[in-house]
Design a protein around this nucleic acid. Structure first.
Lengths: 192, 192
DNA sequence: AAATTACTATATCAGTTCGATATACTATGC
DNA sequence: GCATAGTATATCGAACTGATATAGTAATTT
């Protein structure tokens, strides 16, 4: 999926500036499964604008740099949906420096290994918070009628999947961290 | 984690050619959490060789192109481990075209959504196969003493984590796919 | 009160990396 | 007998990231 399509997808949810689109990929709805940097978003929006896929209006803000708010044209919308029909989705890819480093645990100080595992857990906890903040704050009195749950079932499905994966990760660490570190320490003793 | 470090890491397990290193990232031990293409591996090995981190011996093969087998030098090994100590691991990143596409399920034909989910499941099943082929073939008679389980606890921990995540994913799909598709269909009826 | 940090906002660019392609020969399946 | 898949190295354009520049506000710390 190229960046132009990612930008069109971001604009499907509503008008946005380049900066706001990046936030969708940084913290927002797409952050769990796609990534896009400003250095690629701005040129993509310029190109999309030239090709008639988006229009933009320059919004002057009080004492702030102008904001270019982009909007999907009907053709942009059609093109995006056609892309979804026709494109064979690329392979999933997961990159993790922490897991790569951890696969050399046998050569690393046990303290470093523990720190890496803890860092991995912390990151997944904060991800879980981003995905479903509601569930982790059980006693919000009153506003239980608040629209925390988006009524889009697609969002619910995808974020439910993210939630499940994070929980499985944390659960695995919880169940295996100690025995793993113990085994590493025993091997150190045996080697020295 | 830059490609030079990834190559050094790959060579920690033993001598290998560029082609074999790519296979480690394509199908092998690292395929679950790192990726590297030939277009980056070959230049990296050349550079590492110039810097004295690796040496190589050209192996003539019968009727095949020569094979350059690279080997970590003591300095290469030291440098790699120092990198692991000093580098703050980068953020995990997960990219999935399928999940991105699925997040627009509300605008897509339900059949396409189902195909996407099925494809996602199939890919995770084959990944599970790669991670732990033993568990999925329950009745291998005889060779139960076979060394399927590597005795490196780090590999076991990391691949155990991959296993747990794949299973959680498949489990989630199993439990939620039907109700999700049903809800999509109902919304279509309500809209038309 | 001043200074530092964080945020909003656009834009560019060097360096890295991917994906495709070229080359060349083998092995296997149909 | 032919096509496809595999082994093996190498290169290159296109895409993308991460850093940096610019410029101002808001919030927090000292």
């Amino acid at each position: 999926m190229d960046i132009r399509s990612l930008c069109l997808g971001a604009l499907m949810a509503g008008d946005a500036s380049g900066y706001e689109i990046r936030k969708m990929f940084e913290d927002g709805v797409f952050s769990y499964f796609q990534m896009a940097s400003l250095g690629s978003i701005y040129p993509a929006l310029t190109k999309l604008s030239q090709d008639g896929m988006v229009t933009f209006t320059e919004q002057e803000q009080e004492n702030r740099p102008d904001k270019k708010v982009y909007r999907l044209t009907p053709e942009g919308r059609r093109t995006f949906l056609r892309t979804l029909f026709q494109t064979r989705p690329g392979e999933d890819r997961y990159r993790s420096d922490i897991l790569f480093m951890l696969s050399f645990a046998d050569e690393l100080p046990v303290e470093l290994c523990e720190a890496l595992i803890d860092e991995y857990a912390v990151r997944h906890e904060s991800m879980l918070d981003r995905i479903s903040p509601a569930k982790n704050q059980p006693s919000l009195p009153e506003n239980s009628s608040e629209k925390n749950t988006p009524d889009d079932p697609a969002c619910a499905f995808v974020s439910g999947l993210g939630d499940a994966v994070c929980r499985a990760t944390l659960d695995f660490i919880d169940k295996n961290k100690d025995s793993f570190l113990r085994e590493l320490r025993e091997r150190r003793l045996r080697r020295n």
